[in-house]
Amino acid sequence: MLLWINGPFGGGKTQTAHEIRRRLPGSVICDPEHAGFGLRRMFPPHLRGDFRELTAWRQGVAEVLDLVLSRHDGVVIVPMTVTDPGHFAETVGRLRERGHDVRHFTLLAQRETVLRRLRERGFGHLLQYVAGKNPGPARESWAVGQLDHCLRQLALPEFAEHLWTDHSTVPRTAERIAVLSGLTLRPSTEGALRTRLRQAGVGIRHIRFD
């Protein structure tokens, strides 16, 4: 089974994916952003754009996930924003055509909620900027610029199943996805502080430097 976790930038996809992986033995995360940023780095800076527009990225993602699903016994988790129905058909749709069990979920929240989450995520980037390690919160500015488009597109029926997360924690959202997919997560026994520290670590590890 493949769990594709969609949603706007800053919507909680990565945190939810890592929560599921932590509590579901045998599961793995396959992040298409790795391939996307690799392709993006091949371009000179002035030609870089949204890697999701590259046919090579969409075809490559479908091919790699097809291979992983064919050879890995556990659940495969994919946190990735896809808002174009055509791109969705070339990735999620193609995997389903090849006979794979793909469960797709879109994490949605009110605009104000996502903006707050982006500000919180941007604070970690700002710390990196102060330390001289990256160009600052420009990526959050890009995400804010994409937000209205993302929320409008992802509300379309083809991007269901929709899960609203304004009043849900990451562990609860992960549990909802598991129940809807017929999966059982291990109980979470850690306290609130440990959860926040672990989630902060996940956020820091996923800071992009380009």
Rank of each mutant, 00 (worst) to 15 (best):
M1S: 08
L3N: 03
W4E: 07
I5S: 02
G7S: 05
P8L: 04
F9A: 14
G10R: 07
G10A: 10
G12P: 02
K13T: 07
A17V: 13
A17R: 13
I29S: 01
C30G: 00
P32H: 05
E33S: 05
H34V: 12
H34Q: 09
G36P: 01
L39N: 06
M42G: 11
F43E: 15
L47A: 12
G49E: 13
F51P: 07
L54A: 14
L54G: 07
V64Y: 12
L65N: 12
L67H: 14
L67F: 12
V68C: 07
S70N: 03
S70P: 03
H72E: 10
H72T: 07
G74R: 13
V82S: 02
V82G: 01
T83H: 03
T83Y: 02
G86C: 02
H87G: 13
A89Q: 15
T91W: 03
V92A: 10
R94E: 13
R94P: 00
R94S: 09
R94L: 12
E97H: 06
R98F: 05
G99K: 15
H100F: 10
D101E: 14
D101R: 11
V102D: 02
V102C: 01
H104G: 01
L107G: 01
T113C: 14
V114P: 06
E120I: 06
E120H: 09
R121L: 09
G124W: 15
L126M: 10
L126F: 09
P137F: 05
W142T: 08
A143P: 10
Q146N: 09
C150P: 00
L151H: 10
Q153W: 00
A155H: 12
F159C: 05
F159S: 04
A160R: 11
H162Y: 01
H162F: 05
D166Y: 09
T169D: 05
R172M: 15
A174R: 03
A174Y: 02
E175L: 10
R176D: 08
L180Q: 15
T184A: 15
R186P: 02
R186K: 14
E190Y: 04
T195Y: 00
L197P: 07
Q199G: 01
I207D: 07
I207N: 10
F209Y: 13
